[in-house]
Design a protein around this nucleic acid. Sequence first.
DNA 1: TTACATGCAAACTGTTTGCAAATAT
DNA 2: ATATTTGCAAACAGTTTGCATGTAA
Lengths: 137, 137
Amino acid sequence: MPMSRLHIDKLRQAGLRPTRQRVALAHLLFNAGDRHVCAEVLHGEAMAANVRVSLATIYNTLNQFTAAGLLREVAIEGDRSYYDTNTSDHFHFFQAENGEMMDIDAANLTITGLPELPPGKVIDRIDVIVRIKDAKQ
Amino acid sequence: MPMSRLHIDKLRQAGLRPTRQRVALAHLLFNAGDRHVCAEVLHGEAMAANVRVSLATIYNTLNQFTAAGLLREVAIEGDRSYYDTNTSDHFHFFQAENGEMMDIDAANLTITGLPELPPGKVIDRIDVIVRIKDAKQ
DNA sequence: TTACATGCAAACTGTTTGCAAATAT
DNA sequence: ATATTTGCAAACAGTTTGCATGTAA
């Protein structure tokens, strides 16, 4: 199973033991293109895939993956945390109505006119969220 | 007391009854320049100012002010919600280390290269968070 | 065999809500 | 007088944690 091999290596390189649960979650997360998931949804997918994982482990895993740079937390107001499987430089479209999020490739997007940073500070990263809504109204 | 008069009018125009608590909170929020507050902090300030307000009222008031357009919720990952007293078009610097937030005037800032929106959608607003950190390391 | 990960349930934190008492109009 | 708002405490949702059990190295 070459797919699992890939994920096992990915976890090892991140300094995480490739346990059954982590490998299964990595499979769910990283085998379906770029995704934006929250704990509850990932847990649901695990159940649907007959992967026995507790919700606590889902939370722990999302945090560990994020700390290891495998996931990126997305700053969205609201009650639950979202994680992005795309950790490269990019921005987001966000529809408040249904909570849907879509990637925007950062390649062509440029921001100009930023004021000077406070002394001794550098840019860590820039988050851009383009909130969209229905044209009518 | 002309200050209170201003806030009372502001609340009335927003369709909110100028109760003792709301006027006092408006005073705290809108008399000190642009601010970024969370419920707990505002409650602390109210206590310090000898304004008797329950935490539940703080939450209700922040939500009502936001719904009325007097405040704007700031999307930041993390456990608590932040509200910005500056509701005009602008962006933010954010220091993850200490949670400090600073306004960036949107006047000179331009974003180019946005891809096409999904059909039937328009831009609601664009949130930009420039995350900064210490230069060293 | 030893350190680390998991599951469960309980704890925790921020936020919301139901209802009686207080207040604005 | 009437509808709205407040405070309190209880309820709630998402998330974290302690500890016994299981598992990777």
